[in-house]
Write a protein that binds this DNA or RNA. Structure first.
Lengths: 237, 237
DNA sequence: TCAAAAGTGTTTAATGTACACCCATGA
DNA sequence: TCATGGGTGTACATTAAACACTTTTGA
């Protein structure tokens, strides 16, 4: 804090890791870059602060709304991490504040007000390098996916993948796809309905083909899960 | 990413939550501000990027070294969160990237190369508002303490509070003080020595008054604890 | 030999896992 | 009445909590 030297001024970008479960796979929202650098490459959606006075959290909500057409207050949006390596953008010094967003399976791939070519891409394609991303977005995505996986254990995050009304099987589906492992339907049902304030029965039931109708639930008030839903692999052991 | 408008440039500050266990209390390193705004107030140590090309993580390590006189590579240092509200600094737009550092009980309060009046203050005094901090540093400290508490459960973070050689009782002391609860010495001993690659016996023993000598350990290679050391309160239930 | 702290063994309760079984519907 | 998934009961294994007890030192 010695005064009297020029404080470096940098550009602040907000980048989004938007995840959903779609076609039985964990998918991430990506845009195709139209300009250099990395023109034509896939990248995480994002952008710079809209003004000198825009709050960073607000900017993330704004970007999310632009890309998905959804109001941010209904969706899960949390700060992930800040990436501040000096050369992450070849043009100029840019620091990226990354956010993790979880959305339900949306009706159409993207209805962005910004008219960018956003689309869903399976996370596995990116993590196995069949598709590669611009900047350090591969690393950011990888951090975001790991955060989401671990959040399923201790928080009610899984409900953010689901529509307003969902069944226990829908919820189990989210866990299985995000974690990449199968879970016992009977024990999962008991665990998840036993967690305080996690699920609230709506009274409704599904009217599906081929099976007993399932009770419908909406998300409860709990943010943290007591007790947690632990994965066998990855958690430990 | 529409081009052709002026991208806002902001100043990037790095703020540190440096925690230690000292005199049987969790304490935080604070500086007394010499200049406005908040002159005379206590604040987290920190500063702006040293140059246009300095990495943010590097800046955090540099600040820590300046404040504690210790090499950052031996200490625990992790990014906490970024605080980007537009009015957090009344002078100009500043975004703070906060870091959490854990250090052992240092020989002298501070041996900063920057000759600032850094000193240790019990965390409880700040959280109970007997001492208040400048800017939004109260909130940042609170986030940092909660991060540290939860990291004790799942990571080997507790060893960062200890000197290179320590006993199981030293380690238990860290858990008890940071969590603010008492733990059964017998069960704690068994748990902690049972975790794979957490503790490595050095072969040495303490030669203390009034009790059986304790075996000395150094930290092992494990970063995550299998299984975790869970707190009773706060974890759940 | 006593106090004090380190470390081990054992009992008991809580929790997680596997899986048999019943329920409610559409075809 | 059969196939299909929803949902419950229960036995067993694993883990955590409580605490009696033994070990090893300094005074």
């Amino acid at each position: 804090m010695s005064s009297d030297w020029e404080i470096p001024a940098v550009a602040v970008a907000v980048d989004l890791v938007v995840l959903t479960v779609r076609s039985a796979r964990l998918q991430v929202l990506l845009v195709e870059r139209g300009i250099e650098p990395y023109a034509g490459k896939l990248a995480l959606p994002g952008g710079f602060l809209a003004s000198e006075r825009e709050d960073v959290d607000t900017a993330a909500g704004r970007e999310l709304a632009e890309e998905t057409g959804l109001r941010p207050e209904n969706l899960h949006l949390e700060q992930l991490r800040t990436y501040g390596a000096p050369n992450r953008d070849p043009r100029r010094r840019v620091i990226a504040v990354a956010y993790l967003a979880i959305v339900p399976d949306l009706p159409e791939p993207t209805a962005g007000g910004d008219a960018r070519s956003a689309r869903w891409v399976p996370v596995s394609q990116v993590l196995t390098r069949r598709a590669t991303l611009a900047f350090d977005h591969q690393r950011i995505l990888s951090d975001g996916v790991e955060r989401a996986r671990s959040r399923l254990e201790y928080s009610a995050l899984a409900t953010a993948f689901c529509p307003p009304q969902f069944t226990v099987a829908d919820l189990r589906n989210v866990y299985e796809i995000v974690w990449g492992e199968t879970l016992d339907p009977r024990n999962f049902h008991r665990k998840v309905t036993g967690v305080a304030d996690f699920l609230v029965p709506t009274g409704g039931h599904t009217t599906k083909h081929g099976g007993r109708p399932a009770a419908l639930y909406r998300r409860g008030t709990a943010d943290v899960l007591h007790p947690p839903i632990l994965r066998s692999t990855g958690g430990w052991r």
